[in-house]
Design a protein around this nucleic acid. Sequence first.
RNA 1: CGGGGCAUAGCUCAGCUUGGUUAGAGCGCGUGCCUUGGGAGCACGAGGUCGCCCGUUCAAAUCGGGCUGCCCCGACCA
Length: 571
Amino acid sequence: MRFSRAFIPTMKESPADAEIPSHKLLIRAGFIRKKASGLYDILPLGVRVLHKIERIIREEMDRAGAQEVLLPIMHPAELWIESGRWDVYGKEMIKFKDRHGRDYALGPTAEEMITDLVRKEVKSYKDLPLNLYQIGGKFRDEIRPRFGLMRAREFIMKDAYSFHVSDEDAEREYWNMYETYSRIFKRMGLEFKAVEADTGEIGGKFSHEFMVIADTGESKLVYCEKCGYAASTEKAVQKRPEVPENRESEFKELQKVHTPNVKRIEEVSEFLSVPPENILKLLVYIVDGEAVAVAVRGDREVEETKLKKALKVKDVRLATDEEIERFTGQPKGFLSPVGLSIPIYADYSVIPMVNFVAGAGEVDYHLQNVNWGRDFTVKEFVDVTEVKGGDPCPKCGAPLVGKRGIEVGHIFKLGTKYSEAMNATFVDENGVEKPMVMGCYGIGVTRVMAAAVEQNHDDDGIIWPYEIAPFHVIVIPVNVKKDEIRDTAEEIYETLQREGFDVIIDDRNARPGFKFKDADLIGIPFQVIVGKRAPEGIVEIKVRKSGERFEVPVNEVAKKIRELLYSWSCQ
RNA sequence: CGGGGCAUAGCUCAGCUUGGUUAGAGCGCGUGCCUUGGGAGCACGAGGUCGCCCGUUCAAAUCGGGCUGCCCCGACCA
């Protein structure tokens, strides 16, 4: 590719509506352009990266025994009605009618479509297992598209669905996909972590998310370097503490203290010189329409996904100030568990607490030496607070590491939810008809591109991992008007291409600084700079990632790049 | 959908508070000169129904109302 002919519109300034590095840089470096909220044009450089990502996915999926298909993105409503998701999925789906007035949707995911295909064609256990995948456009009318490609309304996804005769076989395939995904993200050169995840709407026994580690990630995760435990904070569990022996013997007398205008935990902590760990935080939640109190240790935060699961409810939200007063008869900021009329669920973190501080149920007063069991009744101890870095691992007790991540892959065991709803059955070796057991496995292809940038960039621009870079090498003649420089650059360009590298030559008649800036911004791993020493047959290789520079003879450029690549792969 | 903000040249933004000549700058774009190891310089030039509609006024980018689009904060997810 010749830069002078390439459609690579770079720019010096970031668009005003871009917030995070990947969004800014992908636009500045000419990979994408915004069409409308959550909709992006993918430009040639972007397409090159996506193709590379897709190629790795295809190779690994095929190797794992999956087969590629391509289903329509326009889904007939009947299938979604049949699975019961036409209304459940609701506003997230783009729905429309054709000229005959029939309902359709643009597919946000394809369980129905694939199940319909398989139920029609597969009747016997002899045809199972089956793992089918596709790579293509998906549409979700997100409530709030944001962060560029990270949460777009139209995006590219690899979605795979597997069908099995038994739960055991579905589980075997689940772990097959787990290994496959690990290989995929490793090959892409990304730092990632597979974590236990909440199964959400889909349900099922377990599920893993694949997170690309990045500070700007929307998801939080914790992992244990000692035993390997890793989980999304929506899922990460706390070990249930033992109730201390003879705790009653430590109980002190309940006391009411005047705490004028002291509401927040930090304020209470400071005013009474009590650490937050010995203050009870009481929150009122509306769960499926009913008010409940949730008690947690003062330094902990409620994780609503866990709360939802622990209480086995669909909807969870914090009560408004008005609702708090109405349901508890107590003022916000001084809520007391003592004499509270609504049920109190207490987090595990409350179990070991003794003689703690809590609100007194009236303005400007707190209670000291409060004890659960004596002063109020806990309806149930539940695990509902967010696990953080530093907390003990629930498996082995070692301190957990906390990180932020970008969810780029998710694998689920679906069970028979869709096969039962849609009557996808097979006949087993005993002639018995059974529903197929399913699994599903997604990778956000466009999101991977954004995540890769989020994880690999610096002040000058993108730093692509070699495997998914739009080009491996950019050849930069510093002055195309000087024959020796231009000719040497052209020679290197052709040689590298012949040697199998993806290479672009910056043959534009521009000043060197201008070209260097573009090369850094676009993030091509190797820059071959052809300058002053070209007449002596010496050029410079600059490594984008490290900034290292090497002077090498013209005929050893490919060799040197190979050496560098080899040394990286050994790390 | 709730809360907040923005909308002026391709991009980033001034001007608006206190209405009044021909609406500006930098970057980018075109032409010429000059320049070639980190987004050079000079000259000339093109480019705008000031998001849309309604209103107030002798007069609206500027004041008021409505609409639309976009962004940020919460519930969703690859």
